[in-house]
């Protein structure tokens, strides 16, 4: 019983803390060609501004690997580039590569 209670509390604690930073690197080969590194998505920073239902499940399915995010799709108004997000004056624009991508190639 005590173990169950402990597990329940543990699960609750994880839920309250959120999923933390999410590393997006399934298209690493393409990313390398474009001169950028994977995106480390800061979930906590977005939690401060939005409620879960603002993004889930309409814009992002809340499951690892279920969202086939690409820069093309962002440009077309999906995922990060949704019309009220990083494709609007409300948030920084998509061309600020270094705000999301790590290891951004520096200009020569």
């Amino acid at each position: 019983m005590a173990v169950l209670l402990f597990l329940f509390l543990q699960a609750h604690a994880i839920y309250a803390a959120g999923p933390g930073d999410i590393r997006l690197d399934d298209k690493i080969e393409s990313l390398k060609k474009a001169g950028v590194g994977p995106v480390i998505y800061p979930h906590a920073a977005h939690e401060k501004l939005y409620k879960c239902a603002d993004c889930h499940p309409k814009i992002f399915k809340d499951k690892h690997g279920a969202n086939d995010i690409s820069m093309k799709r962002n440009m077309d108004g999906q995922f990060c580039g949704s019309p009220n997000c990083h494709n609007s004056p409300k948030a920084f624009p998509l061309y600020n590569c270094a705000r999301c991508h790590t290891n951004v190639r520096a200009a020569r």
Binding site: K27, S30, L31, A34
Partner: peptide, 8 residues
């Protein structure tokens, strides 16, 4: 040609 495999 865009460097990325996914971008137009």
């Amino acid at each position: 040609t865009a460097k990325s495999d996914f971008v137009n």
